[in-house]
């Protein structure tokens, strides 16, 4: 075991834990809404038993709310499942857009807490790469985490995946208030991930961008 491996393991576990905790927290929020609405249905039944007529419009509203929350939970669980399966294989052929999609969805709650918006720019062409999906997700998260901290609340971080020549590129942009590259970023965790993925990073504080270049 070498130093880089230790860093990757430690960072990977922290990343997995952080994302799992965030998703389970969101599920708890969904359960809380469903719980309140189930309680509201009980209230309607109680009032009906006391002689009050049942208002079908109110019942419709509650059932629609429950359906909405079940869909929300289903979407969270799908992301959680995709994320968990990204550890299945060390190397896998993937569309980079799909990986970006998962990480931006996982990061949405962190963005919301910091009052930052994330915008993944859609592209028509798939960006196919062979990579370690989990390590790449981890690296994208570290970039997003740094980007969200840099821009401050009320701002939007844009993310784009594209194929340029013989490499796949991820661009994080609109990072206008990003500080000059310092020892803070890329840190030792990002460096270890970049090295393991054979990727390169370019932090341009003037342009307000971070570019990651990955082998196809």
């Amino acid at each position: 075991m070498n130093y880089q491996w230790d860093v990757l393991c430690e960072e990977g576990l922290q990343f997995f834990g952080k994302m799992s905790a965030s998703m389970s927290h969101e599920i708890k929020n969904v359960l809380a809404v469903i719980n309140e609405n189930a309680g509201l249905l009980q209230d309607f039944v109680y009032m009906h038993e006391k002689g009050m007529p049942i208002d079908t419009e109110q019942l419709k509203g509650v059932s629609q709310m429950i359906i909405k929350q079940v869909r929300r939970a289903d979407s969270i669980m799908k992301n959680m499942n995709k994320f968990a399966h990204s550890t299945d294989q060390l190397t896998k052929a993937e569309n980079l857009n799909d990986i970006l999609d998962i990480v931006t969805k996982l990061a949405a709650r962190f963005a919301s807490m910091r009052e930052v918006s994330l915008e993944k720019i859609p592209t028509d062409e798939p960006v196919n790469i062979k990579t370690n999906p989990f390590l790449l997700e981890n690296l994208i998260w570290l970039c997003l985490d740094f980007a969200m901290d840099s821009v401050g609340h009320g701002k939007t971080v844009r993310v784009l995946a594209q194929k340029i020549d013989n490499s796949a590129q991820i661009t994080f942009s609109q990072l206008d208030s990003m500080p000059e590259p310092t020892e803070v970023f890329p840190d030792k965790r990002s460096e270890a991930l970049l090295s393991a993925l054979q990727a390169e990073i370019k932090v341009d504080s003037q342009a307000g961008t971070i570019n990651i270049s990955l082998p196809i």
Binding site: N29, A32, V33, E36, N37, G39, L40, M65, K68, Q69
Partner: peptide, 8 residues
């Protein structure tokens, strides 16, 4: 969480 807040 407005859906929670309004129902509560």
């Amino acid at each position: 969480e407005l859906d929670f807040l309004n129902t509560l």
